[in-house]
Design a protein around this nucleic acid. Structure first.
Lengths: 240, 240
DNA sequence: TTGCAAGACGAACACCATTCGCGTCGCGAA
DNA sequence: TTCGCGACGCGAATGGTGTTCGTCTTGCAA
C-alpha cells in the first residue's frame, strides 16, 4: 500500500495535526454514552469520558446536548426502550400491571444508574416514560378504576417501581455492593450487641429474617406492587 | 467590657496569628454541617464549606469523620431525630403505622436531601433508623402480622416512605423546583400536541388531573402507605 | 470566489472529595 | 522543670466533575 498512498500533507498546516473528524452527531454521542453505561454504571458516564470515547474534548458535546442532565435523561429513555406495553385485557389487568411494573424495574436495573435519573428528575417526561404512563393508565381504565384514583395510583406505582429498581441496582451491583451489604449487616449485629439488651426487641427478633429470598431481587418489588394494587382495589370496593 | 479584658498576646508569637483553634470536635463538625443543611440542602454541604464554616481547611475534618458519606449518614440520623415511636396499640396499629410513616417522611423532607442519603445507602443502619425499624416491626406485631411477612413489609414500607420523602423534598424545594415542575408540565403538553392525536389517549385524558391536591404534599404519600397496609392485611386474610 | 454560520475544541473556571506530609501544640514521663 | 512524642491542624496538591469562552476551521450558499 505504502507506495500508492498520497504523500502526507505538510506538517505546518493546522489541518495536518487535527484531521477534522466530522463524525459527531447526537446518535454518536448517545451511542458512546450507552457503551460506557453498559461497561459500568451511570457514574462512569461523564462528559469527559464520552468525549474521550469520541476522540474529542468535552466542549464538543454541547453542540448536541444541553447539559449532562439531558444526556442522563436520554440514557434513561434508552433504558426504558425494550419494555413493551401490553394490550389491556379486563380479565387480567392486575397481573398485566404487575408484569409491566416488574419489566420496567428490570429494564432500569439492567442499565445501572438510570433508575436514579428518574428519582432525581422532578417529573420524568421522556417519550418512553410517557408511553409507559399511558399504558398504566390504560390498564387501570380496563380495571374500572376511576380516572381520579387512577392518576394518584399511577404516580405511586411509578414511584414505588422506580425506588425498587434503584434498590435492585444497588443490590445487584457486581461485587462492591454485595460485600457492602455484608459489612453493614455485621455492623448492625455488632451494634445490637452494644445496645442494652432490652432495647430494639423486635429488630433483634426479626433481624435474621432480613435478606432472605434475595436470590430473586425482583420478588420483593413484585410483592410491593401486589400490595399496592391490592390496596387500590380494596379501597375501591370498600368505599371512600 | 473593653477595659477589663486582658491585653492581646504579642504579635510576634505564632500563636497570636493562628490562635490555635482547638475547638474542633465531632459535634462542632456536625453542628456546622447542620447549619449549612438548614440554610440550603444537602448539595450545599460540602467538606470545603463545612471546613470554611469552622474557619479551617477540609483536611481537618477527616480527624473526626471518615468520609463525606459518613457525614451524610450523620445528617440523615439527625434529620430522623425528632420522630417519636408510638407505644403499639392493637386497636389502632394501622393508623399508628401510617402516622409514623408520614412523620418520618416529613422529618426527612424538612432537611432537604437527607432522604437521598437513605436511597443511596445500601441498607441505612444509623441508630435512629434502627429504632424506627424496630418501632415499625413492633406495630406490625401488635397487628398480628407474622414475623416473616412483617420483615418483607417493613422493608417495602421504608422504601416507599423514603422515596415519598425524596419526592416531597423535590416538590417543596423553595423556588427552583416549583417552576421546574411547571416547565416540565408545559413541555409535556407541547409534546402531546406534537404526537399523533391517536397516541397516548389515556394520558391525554388524565393529564389535567395530575398535580391536583398538591397543596398537601404528604397526602399522596399517606395514600400510598394506606394502600400498602391495606394490601398487607388483604393478603393476610385472603391467604397465600 | 467569497463570506459566513455552524461545528469542533483547547483551555480555563469553579467546584468536588480525598491524601500527603509538615508544623505545632499539649501532655506525660523523666 | 524540661524534654520528647504522639495526636491534632491544616496548606497544598491530586485527580476528578460539569460547564463556558473564544478561537479556529470548514463546508456551503450566494
Amino acid at each position: 500500500m505504502t507506495g500508492v498512498e498520497p504523500l502526507p500533507p505538510p506538517v505546518w498546516l493546522r489541518s495536518a495535526n487535527k484531521p477534522v473528524k466530522r463524525q459527531l452527531s447526537l446518535d454518536a454521542v448517545l451511542e458512546a454514552a450507552l457503551r460506557l453505561l453498559d461497561s459500568g454504571d451511570l457514574e462512569s458516564v461523564s462528559m469527559r469520558r464520552v468525549a474521550q470515547e469520541l476522540g474529542t474534548g468535552p466542549a464538543s458535546l454541547y453542540a448536541y446536548i444541553g447539559s449532562k442532565a439531558e444526556l442522563d435523561e436520554l440514557l434513561y429513555d434508552a433504558a426504558l426502550a425494550p419494555v413493551v406495553v401490553p394490550e389491556p385485557d379486563p380479565e387480567r389487568w392486575r397481573s398485566q400491571l404487575l408484569d409491566l411494573g416488574v419489566d420496567v424495574a428490570k429494564a432500569l436495573a439492567a442499565r445501572p444508574g438510570t433508575a436514579r435519573v428518574a428519582l432525581e428528575t422532578v417529573v420524568p417526561s421522556t417519550p418512553k416514560a410517557l408511553e409507559l404512563m399511558d399504558g398504566v393508565l390504560g390498564l387501570l381504565k380496563a380495571g374500572g378504576i376511576p380516572a381520579r384514583e387512577a392518576v394518584v395510583f399511577a404516580d405511586l406505582f411509578a414511584l414505588h417501581l422506580t425506588a425498587g429498581a434503584w434498590e435492585m441496582t444497588l443490590r445487584s451491583a457486581p461485587k462492591q455492593a454485595a460485600e457492602e451489604t455484608e459489612v453493614r449487616a455485621a455492623q448492625i449485629v455488632q451494634y445490637l450487641d452494644l445496645v442494652p439488651a432490652d432495647r430494639l426487641p423486635h429488630l433483634r427478633e426479626a433481624f435474621p429474617l432480613f435478606g432472605v429470598e434475595d436470590d430473586d431481587p425482583a420478588a420483593g418489588l413484585r410483592t410491593g406492587l401486589e400490595m399496592l394494587v391490592e390496596g387500590l382495589v380494596a379501597r375501591q370496593t370498600g368505599g371512600g
